[in-house]
Amino acid sequence: MERFIQLVFDGIATGSIYSLVALAIVLIYRSTGLKNLAQGEMAMFSAFVAWQFHAWGLGIWLAAVLAIIASFIGGMALQRVIIRPVQDKSLLTVVIVTLGLFLAFNSLAGGIWGYIIKAFPPLFPSNVISMGAVRVPVANIGVFMVLVVLAGGLAMMFKFTKIGLAMRAVAYNMETSKLVGIRVNNVLMLGWGLACALGAAAGIFVAPKLFLDPFMMFGVLIYAIAAAAFGGLDSPFGAVLAGLIIGVVENLAGSYIGFIGSDLKILVPLFLIVVTLLFRPQGLLGHKYVVRV
């Protein structure tokens, strides 16, 4: 039983990481209608920026805040310079541009900071809570709390703020939004800025656990994309729930199903996702859109 509980707690901890990055993917999808393949690499890059600020002598929380602000500005700049020129082209064109960003950010981080892993200063106390044989690091709880707060904030923004409404409108239909007077380009730029800021937060909060190097987010991105799709691309809570489910299920499957073992455990959540999508194509909590012909 303790083994089971431990695995569930571990699963929630890993799942929180997937969910954090998935949230950024959902944000950018919901505000601009795009999928950004570079989301993970940009988060990694932001974490490096925070690490650098800290290395220059700033406190870690201050460094984190500055890096998040820098990422917000950087995200808007990227949208303006690189994404806007192709945003009217085919979806795949934009996706490939983000793939270019993926390679560029990864390589640039390696060029600047090297490939040796770095310890990211902990943002939470490093002690561990014991419940019998079950051990839960305080940092894992901290990351989970951050996740809940960000997801909640995001959902409220979309639901209750004017800017959130404008973002949803633009993502849903750019042309109509223009007609009703929304400054589409500004909204898109803001969407990118916010997504990058959120991604930066994700990168900064998971870095102490994963250890910082240019490939930190490589594996996470795959899970995060899966979580975003599984949860319903447009639902922050869906992404969170899906990420947690993936984290827990793969842990349990890897431990309890002998044939699966740890080498094939990634297949279990993917299988689960496919089966779910066959019956609920819009994802767990996604909205269903009616298509008019």
Partner: peptide
């Protein structure tokens, strides 16, 4: 890879 990624972006733009 930075160069490669930049070339992809440049081609698309």
């Amino acid at each position: 890879e930075f160069v490669f990624g930049s070339i992809i972006i440049a081609v698309m733009l």
